[in-house]
Design a protein around this nucleic acid. Sequence first.
DNA 1: CGCAAGATACTGCCCTGTGCAGTATTTGAG
DNA 2: CTCAAATACTGCACAGGGCAGTATCTTGCG
Lengths: 208, 208
Amino acid sequence: MTSPRTTTSYALLGLLGLRDWTTYELARQVQRSLHWFWPRAERKLYDEPKRLVADGLATATSGSTGKRPRTVYGITDAGRTELARWLDEPSAARSSEFEALVKVFFADAGTLDQLRTTLDRIVAESVQRVSDLADNVDVGVADPAFPTRMHLNALAVRLQVEQELTVLRWARWARAQVDSWPSVHEPDDWDATGSLATLVAECRAAVG
Amino acid sequence: MTSPRTTTSYALLGLLGLRDWTTYELARQVQRSLHWFWPRAERKLYDEPKRLVADGLATATSGSTGKRPRTVYGITDAGRTELARWLDEPSAARSSEFEALVKVFFADAGTLDQLRTTLDRIVAESVQRVSDLADNVDVGVADPAFPTRMHLNALAVRLQVEQELTVLRWARWARAQVDSWPSVHEPDDWDATGSLATLVAECRAAVG
DNA sequence: CGCAAGATACTGCCCTGTGCAGTATTTGAG
DNA sequence: CTCAAATACTGCACAGGGCAGTATCTTGCG
């Protein structure tokens, strides 16, 4: 083994389990589907298949389109076995990065206008993401690449949609809250402490 | 400037804007609050303040507790100015990693039992995160470190709670769905395509 | 009082991953 | 026929993660 496999290795192995792909196709497919819950830069997607081949989990078939090289990757039996084994392993915790929320959190280092702009941008980005998601799903339903996998796709997409809509609803709510604040330091008559208590109660109720 | 500042630089600068901290305290504080939307390894939090000092955005005061060194960091005027300026910049897109969802997505490479186990683990992790969040908030309300920042805290916490609860609800729903599947390849009588269409409709409705 | 466990305070190393620039060739639209 | 877009990569510098390692200080328990 060249070095310990990462989740990215298995994500690509998973795609190779469905059919053969060139790296370029793989990169596009990752952006369309996996990107929502396992985002990786295109750059990585050119390195990773080589490692899979070195470990005997994938095969590389070099061809060409005229003078341009063209490598097609496929999965091996060892690859399928390893992929199935990986499904048993415990997973890393979910983690999300939200730079704009860091700006909201430290809003008192700036002005109320800055906070309002930050929230407006979050709403705009969120609307964009929800639209993109809907467009993607529309295409996937009208012309499914893997019709027999629709149910797995639907499980994953449902979470993505709920997540994006949750952010959008929150952003609109937060923007409305902030609208009545006289300054970034005072929430007017909003009872922040009481609101936190309500949230805690919701959490306790959900976990039973 | 040593090199372009990252969001991590500004996140720490933001904390330094509230009061002075030792790196150890900073590390703990980041785990408690920022970690939910800007997760960074402890290791990084020891390097970053040094860069801030090198750029004149922070000050380092070396003291000691007996023979053990102890560096206290604080913000400079230049640091405050730079922090306020950063609030104007557009932010990076939100991004989240969810390894377990990759396993759900490629569940057809394994067995139905594996999928069920994966979902059970997601539910368990989710319950844990919701509890932790509630505990954190309880402590923060009972004994607030920065009472005058409660409203900003409440904005951020609300999003975190909604996000975690969304994942929890989804995981329970998905686990129930999968319960009736005869195999990982067939969703029994579940209309996955119809379900996707409903989700698209929800998205379209939300973006107007 | 003595000692163990946990808290405090870091550094080094190797690897993954990102972003951007750079280099070509081929295809398709007008 | 031409030019833009798509295809197909590589190199490089830096951010970041995880883990091991090395101390010292504090606290509670017997």
